[in-house]
Computed example of a mutant assay.
Amino acid sequence: MKLRPMTGDDLPAVMDIERSTFPLDAWSEGMMRGELADMPRTRHYVVALIDDRIVGYAGIAAAADQADVQTIAVLENHRGTGVGSAMLNALLAEAGRRGAREIFLEVRADNPHAQAVYLHFGFEEIGLRRRYYDDGTDAIIMRRKLGDSSAP
């Protein structure tokens, strides 16, 4: 597997993964293009490739001393193989390079697997956004201080 920066040419594959991973609240292609338009100024997006096929993507927004995980998605048949962890490590490293001292994210309250992954990476729950997602599901707000050597 290899990671590289996402480009506009990646959007057809990325949008297929987006729609299959987040069927109830998928971003539009226009939203994703808007994110890419802010690279590298305030955004950093990567794609994960296996045998030259995009199997995942992830991105952050970073400004001043704070970063936010915008999205992480992996094709279903590649989940649990380390693809998501590799992308999250890349995002954490990029946030640190950009001078962020902490990184935030929202995760669905009904997704215990993703919550466990983030806890494993040193994130802590700091709040709740009620009915945050389009289907009314709550979001758990999580934060990790960067430079914490106790996390993977």
Score class of each variant (00 low, 15 high):
D68I: 06
D68G: 04
D68L: 12
D68M: 12
D68T: 11
V69R: 08
Q70R: 04
Q70H: 03
Q70L: 15
T71H: 01
T71S: 12
T71F: 03
T71L: 04
I72S: 00
I72F: 01
I72V: 15
A73W: 03
A73Q: 04
A73E: 08
A73I: 08
A73H: 03
V74G: 03
V74H: 08
V74A: 05
V74Q: 01
V74M: 05
L75E: 13
L75F: 04
E76H: 11
E76M: 09
E76D: 14
E76K: 09
N77E: 15
N77C: 10
N77V: 11
N77A: 12
H78W: 14
H78P: 01
H78I: 01
H78F: 14
H78K: 01
R79A: 02
R79S: 02
R79L: 05
R79E: 00
G80K: 11
G80Y: 04
G80C: 11
T81C: 13
T81G: 03
T81Q: 12
T81K: 14
T81I: 00
G82M: 06
G82Y: 09
G82W: 09
G82N: 07
G82D: 12
G82V: 03
V83D: 08
V83F: 10
V83H: 01
V83M: 06
V83N: 02
V83L: 06
G84N: 06
G84L: 04
G84W: 07
G84V: 07
S85A: 14
S85V: 00
S85Y: 10
S85M: 09
S85Q: 14
A86H: 10
A86P: 01
A86C: 11
A86Y: 04
A86F: 05
M87V: 08
M87P: 07
M87N: 02
M87C: 11
L88H: 04
L88P: 08
L88M: 14
L88Q: 03
L88W: 02
N89L: 15
N89Y: 07
N89E: 15
N89H: 12
N89C: 14
A90R: 08
A90F: 02
A90I: 05
A90K: 06
A90Q: 07
L91M: 15
L91W: 03
L91I: 12
L91D: 00
L91N: 05
L91K: 07
L92E: 02
L92A: 08
L92R: 04
L92F: 09
L92T: 03
A93H: 13
A93F: 00
A93D: 15
A93V: 14
E94H: 09
E94M: 09
E94S: 11
E94C: 07
E94P: 10
E94K: 15
A95D: 03
A95Q: 07
A95R: 10
A95H: 05
G96L: 10
G96S: 15
R97I: 00
R97S: 12
R97C: 10
R97D: 13
R97N: 14
R98D: 07
R98C: 05
R98Q: 09
R98L: 08
R98V: 03
R98W: 11
G99M: 05
G99R: 07
G99T: 07
G99Y: 10
G99V: 06
A100Q: 05
A100L: 04
A100T: 06
A100R: 06
R101E: 06
R101T: 09
R101H: 11
R101V: 11
R101Y: 00
E102Q: 13
E102C: 06
E102N: 13
E102D: 15
E102R: 12
E102F: 11
I103L: 13
I103D: 02
I103T: 00
